[in-house]
Design a protein around this nucleic acid. Sequence first.
DNA 1: AAATTCCCCAACCGCACGATA
DNA 2: ATATCGTGCGGTTGGGGAATT
Length: 302
Amino acid sequence: MISSSWNAKLRLMEARRKGKGISRKLSWRSEEDEILIKYIKRNGLGNWNLVGKNSGLSRDGKSCRLRWLNHLQPGLKKNLPFSEKEKLVIFSEHAVLGNKWSDIARQLPGRTDNEIKNFMNIHKKKCLKNGVISIYPPEISMRYTDNGTTEFPKIASSGDHDSVVHQLVELMDLPSIQNTEKDVIDILFSPYLHNPHSSFELLPQPQLAAAHQSSNTSFNVLSSEQCSNLSIADLLYSDYSMDGNLGEHDSIEIFLIMFSIVGCSSFQVQDGKKQVPTSVSIAKRTTASASEIFDPNQTMVW
DNA sequence: AAATTCCCCAACCGCACGATA
DNA sequence: ATATCGTGCGGTTGGGGAATT
């Protein structure tokens, strides 16, 4: 067996020879793969830290685990591009689950979470580059827009605000309230604003505005017109945030629902009157998924 | 042909969570 | 109740090959 410390030395020397200093990332070599495979065949899967210590590899348990799961375990469809069917599953699941890569991977035998994550990240990047607003194919997006034929509840968006809010209250089975927008927003928000374990980060407006200015990648600001053409899933799971003045006829229902799911960094109630929020920013979603928030028995189905 | 930029993927990092001592 | 350990997850980074200049 090749001494692992000697291996490490060789690689260090190689890195120095290349003039790049010491690399932080060390690619796995075929000899290392063989050692790991042999070790697991002999000892079975168990304590990864012990694998790191006892296999003779100069790798920690985490690194061994990752290598095994993503590259060495049997049954992986390595080097096979995603089929169209697999892509559809990814988009479809992502539209519902968001960045729950491991959950999505469980729907696709032979695929790993890392693979799927890379695929979606590259896909999102391409969409952004090509000016494609929706990251989902039309057949997926359709399910989550109010023009779609399924699942997502329809609310007349052309109605006056009170009627829209009233519909929303009925739809969400909210307790009887005055049905003003402010009341609705208060109710939708309260679990997140007052829950110490809330997974939503609420950015103050100036902070978000500063983030917009200082970053050209992490925030992609959409006009409200663009927003109203997007599916809910896009709004939730792509890297968009919204910032801007909402007009009278913006899709208030989308925003109200989004407030409840995503969290809203700020809204204004002007002159104490009920008003469509005039200045809205949506903070980035972190962990909770829509299905965790809504009772599936309720009218709203995702 | 050489230098530079782009892009993809593998590897790493930090954090959260559950089990156990 | 608390500390520690092992595991799993999602976000991010860097190496290196491909494409472009």
